[in-house]
Simulated scan of single mutants.
Amino acid sequence: MAPVIQIVGYKNSGKTTLITRLAKLFNGINLRVAVIKHDLHGFDADREGTDSFRHREAGAAAAAITSPWRTAIFEERETRLPELIEHFASYDLILVEGFKQENYPKMVLLRSAEDEPLIRELQQVCAVVQKEADFPVDEVGPRRFQRDEIEPIAEYIRQTWL
């Protein structure tokens, strides 16, 4: 089973940016990374006018499209995180964006000192990634990183979970 690391924080805290930078770095050392993103607001990843969009619009409860390079599956249902993780079990690492209340190791992104209470509200916080170097830091607690310390963050993940 691939290790799972959650990247959590409030809106616009830099979760997607951190994940894309980590994925690029890990890809560069031949690690296969799967990313699962939680979107509370709903989304539509299929474009209007495509065949798969037309299939779903016609009432199909699920639609898949595949090529020699890519597969996409669209289902008209919510998929729970454990099921998604199981689907990606053969990858080297699974990075999860969001799902704050799930019980996996978490890296919490902070925009400012006002976000600090989030660290105590969540379970399994293993690290904190903060935007500003000058806001107060609790000396006891999870490992701390600055936002741009991508290589040290990646090394921490490698040494701890890979």
Rank of each mutant, 00 (worst) to 15 (best):
M1S: 11
P3C: 09
P3D: 07
Q6E: 13
V8Y: 02
G9H: 01
G9R: 01
S13P: 03
S13D: 04
G14T: 04
T16L: 06
T17M: 03
A23H: 09
K24P: 03
F26G: 01
F26R: 03
F26Q: 06
G28F: 03
G28D: 07
I29H: 09
I29A: 11
N30V: 08
L31G: 04
R32K: 14
V33E: 01
V33T: 02
V33D: 01
V33F: 07
A34V: 06
V35R: 04
I36M: 05
K37C: 00
H38G: 01
D39S: 08
D39Y: 09
L40I: 09
H41V: 10
H41S: 08
F43K: 03
D44F: 13
D44N: 12
D44E: 12
D46P: 08
D46G: 09
E48D: 10
G49C: 05
G49R: 04
T50E: 05
T50Y: 08
D51C: 11
F53P: 07
R54Y: 09
H55M: 13
H55Y: 15
H55N: 12
R56Q: 10
A58L: 08
G59T: 04
A61W: 07
A62M: 07
A63C: 10
T66P: 04
W69Q: 15
A72N: 10
I73E: 13
I73R: 03
F74L: 14
F74H: 14
E75C: 08
E78W: 09
E78G: 14
R80K: 13
P82K: 05
P82N: 10
E83D: 15
E83A: 15
L84D: 02
L84Y: 05
I85A: 11
I85K: 06
E86K: 15
E86L: 13
A89V: 05
Y91M: 13
Y91H: 15
D92C: 09
L93G: 00
I94P: 00
I94N: 00
I94Y: 02
I94D: 00
E97H: 07
E97S: 05
G98L: 03
K100I: 06
Q101A: 14
E102D: 10
E102F: 12
P105Y: 05
P105G: 02
K106E: 00
V108N: 01
L110D: 00
R111A: 06
D115I: 12
E116S: 15
L118E: 09
I119R: 01
I119H: 00
V129H: 02
Q130C: 14
Q130D: 06
Q130K: 15
Q130P: 03
Q130L: 12
K131P: 03
K131Q: 15
D134K: 12
P136Q: 10
P136D: 10
D138K: 12
D138N: 15
G141P: 04
R143C: 08
R143Y: 09
R144N: 11
R144M: 13
F145P: 00
F145N: 03
F145T: 02
Q146V: 09
R147S: 11
I150F: 10
E151L: 14
P152E: 08
I153K: 01
A154I: 10
E155N: 11
E155P: 04
I157D: 00
I157Y: 01
Q159P: 07
W161D: 03
